[in-house]
Amino acid sequence: MYENLREKLWAYITHNNPDLMFTLQEGYSVKTYLEDKIHKVMPMVLDLISEGKPGHAIEELALQEMTKELRPSRFNYIKDVVTREFPTEYNKFREAGVLTYECINMIETCNDIFETFGFCETKQEDNRLRHAVIARVHDYLSI
């Protein structure tokens, strides 16, 4: 179970939060981060096991808990903005193999906007947030 949780958490991070992935790798703290997250959900996992819940359900619930603070994904939000609003640049970055890198840079450029709007699952549909991010990404792409 532990190894499955570790693999699922890392897969989630690499797919939805590559900015975190790179930060953890730079700081040589991947193992510590993953172990800490798993350690925090283990009481819940043990309770679910004692209740007789199936393994796949336990893993899903544990993953949801471990990734709660990582949702919604700023990376996926930025990628969606670039895909929809700047398709030429999106295709250029994708074809050059730098899409992830550029999206991570755009996240850093937009962090103050995300903080100002309190970016969360309920606010990710806010048109003011989207327009502020679009304007900032436009400025980023114009540099």
Results as ranks from 00 to 15, higher is better:
residue 99 L to H: 01
residue 104 I to R: 01
residue 20 L to D: 03
residue 56 H to R: 14
residue 46 L to T: 12
residue 128 R to Y: 12
residue 52 G to A: 13
residue 79 K to A: 05
residue 133 V to T: 05
residue 80 D to L: 11
residue 120 C to E: 15
residue 119 F to A: 02
residue 122 T to P: 01
residue 8 K to P: 02
residue 1 M to T: 09
residue 51 E to A: 14
residue 91 N to R: 14
residue 53 K to V: 06
residue 106 M to S: 07
residue 14 T to K: 15
residue 124 Q to R: 10
residue 67 T to Q: 00
residue 79 K to L: 10
residue 133 V to R: 01
residue 88 T to F: 12
residue 27 G to P: 01
residue 130 R to Q: 10
residue 128 R to L: 14
residue 19 D to A: 07
residue 55 G to M: 10
residue 123 K to W: 08
residue 112 D to V: 09
residue 79 K to N: 07
residue 129 L to K: 04
residue 83 T to L: 12
residue 53 K to H: 06
residue 51 E to Q: 15
residue 8 K to A: 06
residue 23 T to A: 15
residue 40 K to S: 11
residue 132 A to F: 05
residue 127 N to M: 11
residue 133 V to L: 07
residue 38 I to A: 05
residue 114 F to L: 04
residue 105 N to K: 13
residue 43 P to R: 06
residue 97 G to V: 03
residue 20 L to G: 05
residue 123 K to R: 15
residue 137 V to I: 15
residue 14 T to P: 01
residue 66 M to L: 11
residue 31 K to M: 12
residue 122 T to H: 08
residue 128 R to W: 10
residue 53 K to N: 04
residue 134 I to Q: 04
residue 1 M to V: 10
residue 143 I to L: 09
residue 86 F to E: 00
residue 60 E to L: 15
residue 96 A to Q: 14
residue 89 E to C: 04
residue 113 I to W: 00
residue 119 F to K: 03
residue 103 C to M: 05
residue 82 V to S: 01
residue 44 M to H: 09
residue 30 V to L: 07
residue 140 Y to Q: 03
residue 82 V to E: 01
residue 90 Y to M: 07
residue 3 E to A: 08
residue 47 D to E: 15
residue 126 D to E: 12
residue 109 T to K: 12
residue 126 D to W: 07
residue 63 L to D: 01
residue 6 R to A: 11
residue 123 K to G: 09
residue 89 E to S: 08
residue 112 D to K: 08
residue 112 D to A: 11
residue 94 R to H: 09
residue 27 G to M: 09
residue 23 T to V: 13
residue 5 L to Q: 04
residue 55 G to V: 08
residue 53 K to L: 05
residue 50 S to D: 14
residue 134 I to M: 04
residue 129 L to C: 06
residue 79 K to G: 00
residue 111 N to R: 11
residue 80 D to T: 13
residue 72 P to D: 06
residue 127 N to G: 02
residue 72 P to L: 05
residue 123 K to D: 10
residue 77 Y to R: 05
residue 92 K to D: 13
residue 5 L to F: 06
residue 51 E to V: 07
residue 131 H to F: 10
residue 77 Y to T: 04
residue 87 P to A: 03
residue 2 Y to H: 11
residue 125 E to H: 14
residue 50 S to W: 05
residue 131 H to V: 08
